[in-house]
Write a protein that binds this DNA or RNA. Structure first.
Lengths: 199, 199, 199, 199
DNA sequence: CATGAATGAGAGTTCATTCAT
DNA sequence: GATGAATGAACTCTCATTCAT
């Protein structure tokens, strides 16, 4: 029973994810999700009662599945420079990604919370966690690079944080004003050059 | 007559601005604006027919009034370092501003346009203009600093652009995750240190 | 389930029919129908989305129920003269009918379609079908009368068609200018005399 | 002043006529007329207070200008047969007329009155007058034809009335179901053949 | 548990009509 | 007289949410 119920719940979340990827967060109604899931109205309400509740779960699901993916593609014996390049490649992909991206929905969701003055506890705040995880990864990476002598940096934590804000700026600009691949490349190269030791 | 009509229009825009500052963009209805303006339903429709139309005008109005304010506070004989400090101070104010800020509404508006796949011509795209104006100001400032020997930078344009993205990242983070004044200070200091020539 | 849904639908159509009979077509709003059905606003929209859609269904329903009634009253071994008299009696009833008549609504509906330049496929065009059925019935009747020697007519089809247009003229005049029973009688007698063989 | 006022009034009626010819009666709003007249809202209300009032005046105006036109085209020494042909030609033109025709508006107006249960005194009832005038013309024409031996008819008044109803039926059918020129011709020929003495 | 018909609050929009200028 | 901004009633339509089956 619990199993079965879990399956349905997952089905709902997966279908809902599609909807959010297509329409963002603010335009999605319970109806949209009901239709996308091919489920009954009442059925949906047995599991969730608000759209934002569903979206929070979708984000959580997304994060969990993302954890796996990230680690897998790392080759053995990579240098910090290699890893940084890979990190930036992933960031670029995310910044430019059009299909199946939840970015717009995520922003809309957080602005929605903000305008409703709803605070999420840090532990459940996925966007915050992702940001902080990013900072941590970069910081460790920079420290590694300093050890190998590949990187130059006086304040690894400050730089990591600075880079993450810049990437955030690129992401949000891509979703609001739009941005060309060339421009993203230019910015990412600029960031990397700032770290990598230049003779 | 034209005067009077303009006054009413302005009245509407000012009241609407309040509403947008309080509720963001997505939750604002024509009703909200009607109530805020103490005007009749039909009366509003004489001037505007859609919320997004009103918001676009509010942004325009805001930009125009902002132009004046910016120029006034410039002291005579400022060094590039001074000006940079002032620029950053303004940015900080904007990033942390809570009262009467349209930031959330602006982001919501642009995400709305994005999810509806509406394109605004560059000339009318205020967010884009603000961004590009920021880049230009910074670039010129950096070049000035290079001339006076106060700054160090190999690629003024690249750095200007990089800084603007970072500031954008700070702004959006402030509106989604929230950010402390201390953190903003830290980031701005980091940025400035990167430019100012350190012995 | 399907049963139940059908019942509700029928309930709506029957109540709506009342409304159309009273107010014609053009003045009827979704609200009117909602009130007449003692149903919720949204409830009506589950079944129909526009007044003209409802009216089209009401007409269809009316036609179907009318089919039964027409056939039943035919006595055995009627002569063409008898049948013609019966036909005319029915026409008279329809022309003069005040209670529960959809005539005005039907005309208003067709003028509405006309002014909106909406074309209905012939198969769904009930007014057209009724007219053509009328012509056919009359034509066959006249031919029968020619065989029995009761009628005189050189062009049965032409006469049938001519009679139907005249009846249409009477009907529309009754609904616009009004017409007395005596006048209708006079006209119907005139028509019949034109067919029936006079020594 | 009275002159001037009369001019304005006429201007309104002429512009309004255009609107009615295009949109029928039921869809025309005070706004439409204001726009078509290039007049102020208040200005229109100085002359008329309801759409149906304006339409009644438009019909009156139309009838008056029509009186002149009808008489002019009569050739000298026409036989009843000629005049009948001319009469039918005019009827055909009216039945099939698309441009600048008020027919739909007239019907809509009368159905509107009917559904609102508003009665017009016979003296002001233009449609009624036109019908009765038509009957009278036809009756006299038939009597003339009987005298010259061109026509055959036992009941001139009955036939005149019958023809008028048939023409009415054709007119309304043309506006609701649509009718081809060929069909109109066929019907008119049928009518004429019924009168004209055949050897 | 699951269903989906039904509810009703609320947003958008239009227009006849008024009235200060 | 003439103007047109302003009003507010009325209508359309959509959804979150409930509840009998």
């Amino acid at each position: 029973m619990g199993e079965k119920s879990g399956l349905k719940r997952n089905h709902i979340l997966e279908c809902a994810r599609q909807v959010f990827a297509e329409k963002g967060f603010r335009d999605v109604t319970m109806q949209d999700i009901v239709l996308a899931c091919d489920i009954s109205r009442g059925g949906l309400y047995l599991h969730f009662t608000r759209v934002d509740e569903i979206f929070a779960e979708v984000m959580k699901m997304d994060q969990e599945s993302g954890d796996d993916g990230g680690a897998l593609s790392l080759p053995e014996q990579s240098t910090p420079t290699d890893i940084l390049a890979l990190f930036m490649k992933e960031q670029k992909k995310e910044i430019l990604r059009k299909k199946n991206s939840l970015s717009v929905a995520v922003y809309e969701y957080y602005f929605y919370l903000s305008s409703k003055q709803i605070k999420i506890p840090a532990k459940e705040n996925i966007l915050k966690q992702q940001f902080e995880t990013g900072v941590l990864i970069l910081e460790n990476l920079i420290r590694d690079g300093l050890v190998t002598g590949e990187f130059y940096c006086e304040d690894p934590r400050g730089m990591a944080s600075n880079i993450m804000y810049t990437l955030e700026g690129l992401k949000v600009t891509a979703r609001t004003l739009g941005i060309s691949e060339a421009l993203v490349d230019k910015e990412l190269v600029y960031i990397v050059q700032n770290i990598v030791f230049e003779e």
